[in-house]
Design a protein around this nucleic acid. Structure first.
Ligand SMILES: [Mn+2]
Ligand SMILES: [Mn+2]
Ligand SMILES: [Zn+2]
Ligand SMILES: [Zn+2]
Lengths: 145, 145
DNA sequence: TTATAAATTTGTAATCATTACAAACGAGGT
DNA sequence: ACCTCGTTTGTAATGATTACAAATTTATAA
């Protein structure tokens, strides 16, 4: 487990004081590919840190997003997800299992239309929605029987 | 104003009973390029229909989304926007004026990565965030003085 | 037409994620 | 040890969405 070390380095580089909660939150995000929501982060960290408050999770996440250390992902409208990978990359949301996964291998910057010449584009979000391979076969099986 | 006729046709084609509220909501969406949220739709329609309930707006929107007649757009995480254009197209969200506008001229379907071969992709959402031409110059002016 | 059933619309209460904010805490510095 | 300031916590407020039962409208049958 050296996501802690990694987190500390990232915070220092970003001139953000590496407080205990910030380290916990960032290190948690670095250690997962699940794009968790606030509640997920809170529940998992709370097991090791019983005094933890959900407000602290919000505090840290807001700061980290502000400092461009992590990114916010808005897919389902009920809850916001967070990603330690702040680079521009695409996601797939599975309506079956609810997972959000990275789709590598395509560069969203290629989507910059010439129509955006007059715009200042700070961020590109791309996501696909549908069924992941596992959930897809499940659905087909159900239709069969 | 023949968005009403248009709405009626679309509902019939989709085998959705064209009730008065559904016609109002769909016709409102057809008549705007603003990608309005529930409250915007509600407030504007309420002026002409004083008995209107917000629950009815939710009812109609949910049904229309379900029937693939309109689409839900999730950009800002506080509120959901709706679009009578259910085709796959891109949007730009301006952090200055808060507007969401269509970006034509690129087909998101071109971007189906080979990595998605095993997936069932029902929907592609792409949006850019930043500053629209108008807000961009305003920002630059402020920096100058 | 009148009665009856079904669907729609309304009003309101409940839910749930997020925000606001004041009190408690804790790491440095004196 | 004491003070200060930023951090963390607990809790209340907000605001969008959902749930749901009552009222109203529309469709169907007698
Ligand atoms: Mn990701
Ligand atoms: Mn649009
Ligand atoms: Zn799945
Ligand atoms: Zn703008």
């Amino acid at each position: 487990m050296n996501t802690k070390k990694q987190a500390e380095q990232i915070l220092r580089d970003g001139h953000v004081k590496p407080t205990s909660i910030r380290l916990e939150v960032l290190s948690y995000l670095l250690g997962t590919d699940q794009h968790p929501c606030v509640d997920q982060i809170y529940l998992d960290l709370k097991e090791r840190i019983p005094t933890l408050s959900k407000a602290s999770i919000y505090n840290s996440l807001h700061l980290l997003v502000e400092e461009h250390i992590i990114q916010k992902i808005t897919i389902e409208d009920e809850k916001t997800r967070y990603d330690a990978d702040h680079s521009t990359h695409s996601h797939f949301f599975c309506k079956g299992c609810g997972q959000v996964m990275d789709i590598e291998g395509l560069d969203p910057n290629d989507f910059k239309s010439p129509l955006l010449k007059e715009f200042e584009v700070d961020q590109i979000q791309i996501y696909y929605a549908g069924y992941c391979p596992a959930c897809k076969v499940q659905k087909e099986d159900k239709t069969d029987e």
